[in-house]
């Protein structure tokens, strides 16, 4: 969601605990937070918990919100942290260092050169394909996944993404490129098979 949407809210009223204004804020941003959590966690119940906790924390933290980023970006930031905590709780056996840091340069280099662009839209976005798209994103290391979801799915700018994740813009760009290239590989495998079927 764009920054202009957020600016339509009275920060003064929100900071003062105005319930009507807060209810408006929730309605304006609940869908984007729910989507983010669903993509991150792939579980409706967990996503709902993240949604609730995000707005509870926002409610508590609003008096000290300084407005250095937009409200929208700030909410994303809380929601990303909540989602990551949920993931940590799920698999405590995985050390944080091992979780997505091992992103080496080999992942960079494309290995699939099937040109599946010409497949019909109906096939590219069939319900089976959509399920595959969701699975593929879950195979990304967390660090790549968050950047990709915020930038390419939710449509935040590089700057907003860097604010939401507390990363430099350079780090966002590096991770974004890796995420995109990896997903392209996954999708090439999937759609490449469809393409082969079609030509037989």
């Amino acid at each position: 969601m764009s920054e202009s949407t957020s600016q339509a809210f009275s920060l003064e009223a929100l900071r003062a605990g105005d319930r009507t204004e807060f209810a408006r804020l929730v309605d304006a941003h609940a869908s984007q937070i729910y989507r983010l959590a669903l993509k991150m966690l792939a579980d409706p119940q967990d996503a709902e918990d993240v949604l609730q906790n995000t707005f509870l924390k926002a409610m508590q933290a609003l008096p000290s919100f300084e407005g250095r980023s937009s409200l929208s970006t700030w909410l994303y930031r809380i929601a990303v942290n909540e989602s990551l905590m949920t993931l940590r709780r799920r698999k405590p056996e995985v050390s944080i260092a091992g979780n997505g840091d091992a992103v080496d340069d080999d992942d960079y280099v494309p290995t699939q050169f099937e040109d599946w662009c010409c497949l019909p839209e109906k096939e590219l976005l069939s319900s089976e394909a959509r399920t595959y798209l969701d699975q593929a994103i879950r195979q990304l290391p967390e660090k790549l996944r968050t950047v990709f979801i915020l930038r390419d799915i939710e449509g935040l700018s590089i700057r907003e993404t860097s604010q939401a994740l507390d990363l430099t813009e350079t780090a966002v760009k590096t991770r974004l490129l890796r995420a995109r290239l990896r997903l392209r590989e996954y999708l090439s495998t999937y759609y490449g098979e469809r393409l082969a079927k079609e030509s037989t």
């Binding site: 989507r35 993509k39 798209l133 969701d134 390419d152 799915i153 997903l183 392209r184």
Partner: peptide, 14 residues
């Protein structure tokens, strides 16, 4: 081409 399409498809699903 396929990278552009990949980004487009994810954007469509959201």
């Amino acid at each position: 081409d396929t990278l552009k399409k990949t980004i487009y498809l994810y954007h469509e699903t959201a």
